[in-house]
Amino acid sequence: MEAPPVTVMPVTGGTINMMEYLLQGSVLDQALESLLHRLKGLCDNMESESFADHETVYLLKGQQGNPFLLRARHSLAHPAAPWHLRYLGQPEVGDKSRHALVRNCVDVAASHSLPDFLNEMGFRMDHEFVARGQIFRKGALKVVVSKLFRVLVPGNTENTEPLSLSYLVELSVLAPAGQDTMSEDMRSFAEQLKPLVHLEKIDPKRHM
């Protein structure tokens, strides 16, 4: 008997058809303070939020095409907060006129039974990590500066080790498809972080 087909098409149409515009970079631990200082000056006048999140990436192998990935995230600092389920589409990086990587993005809040639910659906955990850092905002722009940690014992978020001596810096905007002016704003913002951090459009496939 054939297994029922698993939809691997990205969700389109309706209000949830949002694109994520993304630029990435990193900063060494010793330069982190300068970067945070600069971000405090550049971003909206607010207290930057600290966060500690545990992200688990689930994989469902469809019949054809690429495996289907879902990212489940929950806060370690606020265990009662809802889980966050995220689907990310294939990144589009080819367009030279666009200054940022663009990918389909669906965000959903979920209850705490999300891992069990995904397991029942046939998803299997592929990998997990812990991210600790700070979030800044400037209008629609979001800047996340975070340190990634390897989880040494699966599921145990207490026992972790840092992945590298740098912090990951991500500048992102969520916008409906086709709003390419966003990438202009992002580029000018990224310019202001130079030479501390070089935020670039990085094709993850190139580094597989």
């Binding site: 990193s26 900063v27 997990e128 599921g155 992945l163 501390l196 580094h207």
Partner: peptide
């Protein structure tokens, strides 16, 4: 203030779990 190799490693890690212990 930054290391391009670290950028690559971090992006690869969040992108598809490169270098993260497999579960």
């Amino acid at each position: 203030s930054f290391n391009p190799a670290d950028t690559t490693a971090l992006v690869a890690a969040v992108g598809f779990g490169k270098g993260l212990a497999k579960c």
